[in-house]
Amino acid sequence: MKNSFKKIITGVSALALCTTAAVTAAQAWEPKKPVELIIMAGKGGGADQMARLWQGIIQQNKLSPRPFIPVNKPGGSGGEALQYLKSKAGDNHVVMVTLNSYYTTPIMQPELNVDISTFTPIARMALDTFLLWVRPDEGIKTLDEYVEKVKAAGKDWKVGGTGSGQEDSILTAMMEAEFGYDVTYIPFPGGGTVAKNLIGGHIDSTVNNPSEQSEFYRAGQSMPIVQFNDERSPAYPDTPTAKELGHDIVYYMQRSINGPADMDPEAAEWYRDLFKKVFDSAEWQKFCNEDGIDCSTWLDAAGLEEFHKNGLARHKNLIEQVGAKAITGE
């Protein structure tokens, strides 16, 4: 309680005060050994690419006296990573890169017994976006054509995504509910593998994040049909949003950094200060712009805590609405 009170105070205080506090905190605490940067997804996916980019920015600009070592724990839709973070309570040398499975996996897998509100929120780095992707040879140009084709194919239409019971399957289930069709959803271990399976013709469509598909799109091997943001992303100015077309499907992927429970406040503050520098770096902002990721707003501890609370509530609602079964396909 005392901790969160302190965080709120820090969050709302003036910018000058905030920076001074961060500077003194940075002097007070520094990592004494390599920091584990846990990624709750597989290699080559969006989260993985970002984590490795952050690691690079940290090392290149000498922002940390000790290196950050990315560790992938993709098992069980992030369940493995969550369990791991839970077991690291009080450890100041572990931080985790989270996705929306941060909310969905504890809901879908109550036996994991993970309560994310006990973890230490550090910073939100971005809101990643989702687009609906198909291959050009499928002859689909618009959302209407897509829906028509999927309806005709029924269960023979194969949608690939990362894991089951997490963001890709939720978005797929949201689309099923909105358009009234029923597809076959195939889980893969990472976004990179999903993208490759679309290009190779093993699945019919995906809801990949832009960073996973952008190179294939530039090579003319895949194309976006619709995006699920509030407004068109600057990187994809010609692709309509679902909202514009009269379908209320808005869905983002949060990219944030969180520490284990009971992390020392000084340590958390040090990481916050570090990731603010990463967030402001030219490399990160360039990456966001190229890939159509929303990196306009940085959230600190208080903001992120509130954001997580809303995220958890929204996903509880979504899962109730579409039904857990529609998501896992059981």
Binding site: K43, G44, D48, R52, G56, G192, K196, S214, E215, R218
Partner: peptide, 27 residues
Amino acid sequence: TLGIPGSPTTAVLLGGMIIWGLRPGPL
């Protein structure tokens, strides 16, 4: 060619390429 690592080590190499500003992929 695909931006998909065939082994854990190439996954780390891939991360390196992204940092150097090279995007692995068909192009």
